[in-house]
Design a protein around this nucleic acid. Structure first.
Lengths: 108, 108
DNA sequence: TTTAGGTATCTTGCATTGCAAGATAGTGAA
DNA sequence: TTCACTATCTTGCAATGCAAGATACCTAAA
């Protein structure tokens, strides 16, 4: 999978997932990887970025099957940014898909 | 518009357009900008990249309304790369849109 | 006890690419 | 001659995904 396509989209996907419920990093990696492959080296720096930008807050929670998990939770600002990002993605992907369709089915 | 979203996608759009007919750089900028904003500083280095990778060839053609135009034409390899890129984009954008939908209309 | 594998977090530095900013130059009209 | 439009090109910065590796907890098998 083209790594360039993911630029910026990964951030939006993480925020979309967090808008539904709190999650921890390792969980996010595996959930997103069901759709398209990503690695831990992408997620943790991204989560740190969201934290310093004030879009998420964190809390630790113990686990029965391994080390403690650091959960991430969207802040009010995070929700707003999430919604804007989703809107931008929808506009963008519609524009791109429209262009592709015109350029590949332009015979008719 | 989120500049990160365009990474890699701009290349695919250019190749999609060139797959339909030959175009020159300035023309590509304006055609793509009808869908989403891009600048000349993005197109010309990209076209040079496609040239060195052997995906396009070029030829000059005079114009009645300004300096000569450098037209870009997809090579055989370029067509193949174009089709693969479009397929990858379709898979990727479907995956992302599916995730977004599930995370925003997950009440039901 | 030791080993192995799954779970979980984190850091460093590289590669890629869009873009702002600016340079250059042809054409035609005011 | 001045302006606007057309057209190409270069430089260097900013952003971000990821490979690679380190650390550490827990459980179960050997």
């Amino acid at each position: 999978m083209n790594a360039q396509f993911k630029k910026g989209v990964l951030e939006m996907c993480v925020m979309a997932l967090l808008g539904f419920r709190d999650r921890y990093g390792y969980e996010l990696v595996h959930e997103i990887s069901e759709r398209f492959e990503i690695s831990e080296g992408s997620i943790y720096p991204l989560l740190r970025r969201l934290l310093t930008e004030g879009y998420v807050s964190t809390y630790l929670q113990e686990s029965v099957e391994g080390p403690a998990r650091k959960y991430y939770s969207l802040t009010e600002n995070g929700f707003q940014a999430r919604n804007e990002l989703i809107k931008e993605w929808n506009d963008f992907s519609n524009a791109v898909c429209g262009l592709i369709e015109e350029m590949t089915h332009a015979e008719r």
